[in-house]
Design a binder for these strands. Structure first.
Lengths: 197, 197
DNA sequence: CCTATTGGTAAGTAACACTTACTTACAAAA
DNA sequence: TTTTGTAAGTAAGTGTTACTTACCAATAGG
């Protein structure tokens, strides 16, 4: 019998909690379904009542975290209407979110990209939305003359997103502590003012 | 009997070739050892004569590609001694290498990061060397006054590497064609001259 | 000519992701 | 009050997979 996805029964919640906990300790591939079930105190079969497969569980956990991330950032952006300030908020808030939500960033930056079916998932849809928001801000910045007219908005977005993601990798992989203030102002300084003397 | 790794027998070469070919078609996890062996026309057991496990095979294939990448870039850099020019060469050459060696970039940007034992591999040692080279150039640029004195070299490196990697993701994942000239000059323009009007 | 080593094979095995067939609980309809 | 439909959960599989073990054949050195 297939589940229709309307309710949110205790078993389902326990499975997601158990999986999140395990993701904090080890990488996706070395987590077994037996382990997930045992820690959740349910049987293995139940996982497949609520999730298509192990990857689907991963995507849904990511999605849950992403919703929080998105709403937090959007409310912060809304308070500003200077575009450069808004982009600075994005840089800072993204770094902050990645830093104090290791599971979220681990999944997003290390675990999901290698499989094509991620890009059909709801979690990926959220990323696109976030990404689109950034592009809108950049375009507005160009129109209002806050940004140089010869800037390609798509490339600027790549630079910003790439810098953010790369900055978090060391922290996620090696557990290095990241100085968010220093790194975010550093990135913003380079991206907006340039590095050339 | 353990292999000492001195010679390079035909079976070993066939396995690596077969695996490379499969990596061009699908992701690491959905490639089976049976498949690798069949396409290489050897038995499955032989894989484990030359490689510790499936991941080790991945790392060694990556390593092979990385050596070519590294030597190519270093010879290009040697021809310049203006630091900004050198960094521009790095941006351009990296994009170019990623673009015309999809397997290499797929492995490097999507497949290896999620497992901790990659960071003990020889392939990761190469990355560190490459990364160190970039840092040296930046430091030289600071000393010789080509770069602004308030720039943090580690952060500038993060921005450059992040931008390069992010720029390639779309191409690798979705097979989108990348305009290397446009993107590399675009990135360099932002990083060196800044985006603010 | 023997023997150690290397290249390679064949036949396993344990563990894993996922399935199937079943039970229980319970709410709404008849 | 009984019936029926369905959601929640279980128990016991199954096929596949990465990896292992034990073996064989060729060959080069002493």
């Amino acid at each position: 019998m297939k589940h229709k996805g309307k309710t949110n029964p205790p078993g389902r919640i326990k499975i997601m909690k158990s999986f999140s906990l395990l993701m904090a300790q080890k990488d996706f591939h070395s987590i077994t379904t037996a382990e997930i079930a045992k820690n959740a105190q349910v049987t293995e079969g139940l996982i497949y009542k609520y999730f298509k497969d192990k990857k689907d569980l991963l995507y849904q956990v990511l999605n849950k975290h992403f919703v929080e991330f998105q709403t937090k950032i959007e409310s912060r952006i809304a308070k500003e209407n200077n575009c450069i300030k808004q982009l600075e908020i994005i840089i800072f808030s993204s770094l902050e979110s990645y830093a104090d939500n290791r599971i979220f960033s681990k999944i997003l930056l290390l675990e999901v990209r290698n499989s094509l079916d991620f890009f059909d998932s709801g979690a990926y849809e959220m990323i696109r939305k976030y990404s689109r928001t950034i592009l809108e801000i950049i375009k507005k910045g160009l129109k209002e003359g806050e940004l140089k007219s010869d800037i390609d908005p798509l490339i600027l977005r790549k630079v910003i997103l790439g810098a953010i993601e790369h900055a978090c990798l060391g922290e996620i992989i090696f557990g290095r502590k990241l100085d968010i203030d220093k790194v975010s102002t550093g990135i913003a300084n380079i991206v907006f003012n340039g590095a050339k003397a």
